[in-house]
Amino acid sequence: MSTPATVPAASPAAGMPAIADQNGSLLRGNQEVLTFTIGEQNYGLDLLSVREIRAWTEVTPLPNTPPFVRGVINLRGAVVPIFDLRVRLGGGITNPTSANVVIVVEIGSESCGLLVDTVSDILALDASALQPVPATAADEEHGFLSALATHEDRMVALIDVNRLFSKGVPALPAAA
């Protein structure tokens, strides 16, 4: 089950301010996010989009795919594509080890795996912790961040999985 990328904010009577992201969509507060790292950066995903967390296993590569498509795995009879989130976020290719993990998420009605360095924790964020993503030159190509959250001494970039691969994802071959 997936949640909408944006949910209307609660009414002012509920005491929750409405915060708009860079696309003008309202961000919701009081959400739980799974946080993870890629290099030294902290990121988060809406916990409702996460199906499971798995240890890294070798994938079956697919020909003629973008660099962020690592390949596919068989997940209980379903073919699931695995995406290297470091590449998708503009970093280099991950050289996975047994320390890396795959976060299996729902994007629309499809499942995919996101290769990350480590999973950190689950944060409960309220609207006061959310800030809109500043406008940058890369917004059109990389507009998949929904907000920035501050928690204790760290900043977490929240990723909207519904926008993460909305452009440029190849159609994967049908399972034989």
Rank of each mutant, 00 (worst) to 15 (best):
M1E: 04
S2A: 11
T3F: 04
A5W: 03
T6W: 08
A10V: 02
P17A: 08
P17H: 06
I19S: 00
A20V: 12
D21I: 06
D21L: 04
Q22C: 09
Q22N: 11
N23R: 11
G24W: 07
L26K: 04
L27H: 06
R28K: 09
N30S: 11
Q31T: 15
Q31F: 11
E32Y: 15
F36R: 00
F36K: 01
T37S: 13
I38E: 01
G44W: 06
L48P: 01
L48T: 06
S49M: 08
S49E: 08
V50Y: 05
V50P: 06
E52Q: 13
E52F: 07
A55D: 15
A55W: 08
W56V: 13
W56I: 12
W56T: 12
T57M: 11
T57R: 13
E58K: 15
V59F: 04
T60Y: 05
T60R: 09
L62S: 00
N64A: 10
P66V: 08
P67G: 07
F68V: 01
F68S: 00
R70A: 05
G71V: 03
G71M: 01
R76V: 14
A78I: 12
V79M: 15
P81E: 06
R86I: 09
R86S: 15
L89H: 11
G90V: 13
G90Q: 10
G91E: 14
T94F: 05
N100L: 12
V101E: 13
V101L: 14
V101I: 13
V101G: 07
V102Y: 07
I103Y: 01
V104I: 15
I107R: 08
S109G: 12
S111H: 06
S111A: 06
G113V: 04
L114M: 08
T118W: 08
T118C: 08
L123W: 09
L125A: 07
D126P: 09
L130A: 03
Q131A: 10
P132K: 07
A135L: 14
T136D: 12
A137T: 14
A138I: 13
A138S: 13
D139Q: 14
E141N: 14
F144I: 07
A149R: 00
A149C: 02
A149M: 01
T150M: 05
R154T: 14
R154G: 05
V156E: 01
L158R: 01
I159F: 02
I159R: 00
D160I: 03
V161G: 01
V161N: 00
S166K: 03
G168Y: 02
V169D: 03
P173S: 05
A176T: 13
